[in-house]
Simulated scan of single mutants.
Amino acid sequence: MSARNGPAGGDEILVGYDASPDASAALEWALDEAERSGRPVRLAYVFEWFTVAGWLGPGVAPGVWPDDTARRQVEELVGKAAADAAAAHPGLTVTSEVVDGPPAVMLQERSARAALLVLGSRGHGGFGGLLAGSTAVTVTAHAHCPVVVVRETAARGARAGRVAVGVDGSEHSLLALGFAYQQAAARRVPLHVLRAWQPPIGQRPPSGPEAREAAAADRAELDEPLARWSGTFPDVEVTVQVAAGGAASLLVEASRSAALLVVGSRGRGELRGMLLGSVSQQLIQHAYCPVAVVRER
């Protein structure tokens, strides 16, 4: 058991931590993941010195420039969280650090040395009214490793259940499929693979035999990647669902019975040029379980 200050190794689970309810839920999720994987956990509190509005740290009022006392309070806060986590999870290495700078930039930078980054969907600060905080959205779009976004309300009761993954054939979604297989195998739960299909813009949805043929063609595209990963994880029970409609609504509904929902950071469609696709953004706001967003390093 360990709880110390300073950076950990490069195979760690990094947690963006600010003591908010969502960040506390993210920490619990990360500790559960560490129990399965054996990875060390590091809590990173990003202290934004130059912010002049919003929550800066314990005892620091909005609009007040932080001083050394405020920083010590922050260091004590995150250090205690790490120590408590280590005490509750004997055998895990839990470290903490306080870094200075813009939260999104600093977490993105540190994600290059992490195996996984875990965030609350929103924390303290001026963006509390948003469904998903600006830091979570930005970091998810730019991180160098997979990012798991946890909402405190969505994390309740989500530890049991299958892993669900959205696959549309894009490169990012195939990476998500591999991550989802790994998670399902580690958790010893089934994997539910989902694919939504829609007609090209301006065309009517097919019906009858045409609809069945379209669904079958989309299902056939999954055969090769599923066979590849099933060979690596033969004990994972897999179900496949191909349904007409929007991807976001299909995946949100699937998240009701999932312990984890996995997607690529962007997929096919008109918005594929965005760093974080519209479907991914909707899921981290509305899913009923934690959401993992996967992109290439």
Rank of each mutant, 00 (worst) to 15 (best):
A184T: 04
R4M: 01
S230I: 01
V150E: 11
V236E: 00
A83M: 00
R71S: 04
L31K: 05
Q183A: 12
A243N: 05
D168L: 05
G120C: 03
R72G: 05
W65R: 12
A220I: 05
F233S: 09
G79K: 02
D68H: 13
G178E: 14
W29I: 01
P200R: 07
E213G: 08
D22F: 04
A61S: 10
V236A: 02
P205M: 10
L175Y: 05
V165I: 01
H142N: 04
T93N: 10
V150F: 08
G277Q: 07
V167F: 02
G123A: 03
G59A: 06
G202E: 08
G120M: 08
C289G: 15
L116F: 09
V263F: 13
G38P: 06
A227N: 11
A132E: 06
P234T: 00
V262C: 10
L226K: 09
K80L: 05
V98E: 01
A158W: 03
R122W: 09
A180K: 04
R151I: 00
A143W: 03
A141W: 12
A132T: 15
A88C: 07
G157W: 08
P200W: 11
C145Q: 05
G128F: 07
V263A: 08
A132F: 02
R295Y: 05
V118H: 00
V149W: 06
E237M: 02
V240Q: 06
A44F: 08
H124I: 04
G63Q: 03
R295D: 09
P7M: 08
L283G: 09
S96Y: 15
H172P: 10
H142L: 07
T138V: 12
T93F: 03
